[in-house]
Design a protein around this nucleic acid. Structure first.
Lengths: 229, 229
DNA sequence: TAGATTGTTAATCGATTAACAATC
DNA sequence: TAGATTGTTAATCGATTAACAATC
């Protein structure tokens, strides 16, 4: 989903609506940089991002004054500034719980690493699989026992976890992760997870995208969607 | 990500912000129904969904008058009404292009089937894999040749496709899908896909969730996220 | 200087919220 | 009838948009 807008503004004063669009700009700028473009106008970047130039300039103005009047924006510099605001310049240690088909695929999935999410731990409940070597991004990791969950989280400073277990195990894993101090959970198990209100975690439904997509398919003639992971 | 709100209102007059929350209500209602609850008040459903009761009632009022004053909402009836609006009561044929680790996992992933997305075709470029039998939801499917793409789309009335190919192949597959009449593409290849503006497809970035998540992690003390697929 | 393009302003529009009349 | 809870109203708040002054 869209992210539910529980808070109107982030602490830095950047509106949520703007933050939600920054990754789109980041992606468009990356594509431009790959093509060797060094400077881009708000008009060009806007149409590459599918927004109006007025909205783009308004959004960027919340980050600071990174453009040059009469010229445009330096692609690399703007790319860095957006990455910084989004936390993409930081390293985010991630643990994956459940190394079945999906967990295995997610471990190898390049989309994590390229956004600063570094898989530092693979956990599985099956004792027979403990010790198995798996490629996670550019490094080889050994599957560890589920019992080591708390230890891995503490050792590596993990604050983000991916649950890719069977549905039946998901809630118990979730409880242990929260207790261990993990503050973000990406749940791929087909289960609704409960977290104590006091923890203050917000819930984001990836499935929302698919459902809205269906809705729009049904309602709007010829209006489809490209969803990118 | 959040769906970009290109259009303020859908054709039925339901605000986009409301539509984006309907799947959350749907999920909360499902959990209640599973627990045997038959009637729920706006207060109860709101706290189960993480919104205020005022917002919930306002949202539901856009669908119609499905509650009973002094009593609450019938869980099953409301569930059906929301499902209908979201298009979950319809069958959406889906084709998956690229049956590697991720494509294989997605084919078997229960989250598709339970939301009306029925996998009707599996395509792969590797001739050696054509004919291979794969479980997709509750049915056995044979992998077909990539050359059959147009035929499968036409035969099954496919309007939604999942791209799970290597990055290098993604754009070509995307072009063929669009030409064949597919209006929604869920792209898991680590590539930015271009679609002609005239097609009018909207772009939704799943990765946005991860990036916003990182942002919030960084900015807001103790405010995390539960992302559910 | 002249042309181009940013960053900001102010008006418009949609979403949220709290309060309450309607009604079961 | 009395209590409970919906559906709606009106005020508030945030987001979008177009126009333009600032400035490279």
């Amino acid at each position: 989903m869209p992210l539910t807008s529980a808070n109107a503004r982030s602490s830095r004063g950047i509106p949520d609506a703007t933050v939600a669009r920054l990754p789109v700009y980041h992606r468009a700028l990356s594509a431009l940089a790959d093509r060797g473009v060094t400077v881009v106008s708000s008009d060009e970047l806007a149409s590459a991002s599918g927004v109006t130039s007025a909205k783009l300039r308004k959004d960027l103005s919340h980050l600071g004054s990174y453009g040059t009047r009469g010229v445009g924006y330096d692609v690399d510099y703007l790319l860095y500034q957006i990455a910084r605001v989004l936390g993409l310049t930081q390293d985010w240690p991630v643990v994956i719980v459940g190394v079945g088909n999906l967990g295995h695929a997610l471990a190898g999935y390049g989309g994590f690493a390229s956004r600063g999410f570094r898989v530092v731990g693979l956990l599985d409940a099956d004792p027979a699989r403990v010790g198995e070597q798996i490629m996670a991004g550019d490094q080889l990791l050994s599957i560890r026992a589920l019992a080591d969950l708390e230890q891995v989280v503490a050792e590596c400073g993990v604050s983000i976890a991916v649950i890719a277990t069977p549905a039946a195990a998901a809630q118990q894993v979730c409880d242990r992760l929260v207790a261990a101090g993990v503050t973000s959970i990406l749940n791929f198990a087909p289960a609704v997870l409960a977290v104590p209100e006091t923890v203050g975690m917000r819930r984001v439904d990836l499935a929302v995208e698919l459902q809205i997509l269906a809705f729009h398919e049904q309602r709007r003639l010829g209006l489809g969607a490209v969803v990118s992971a």
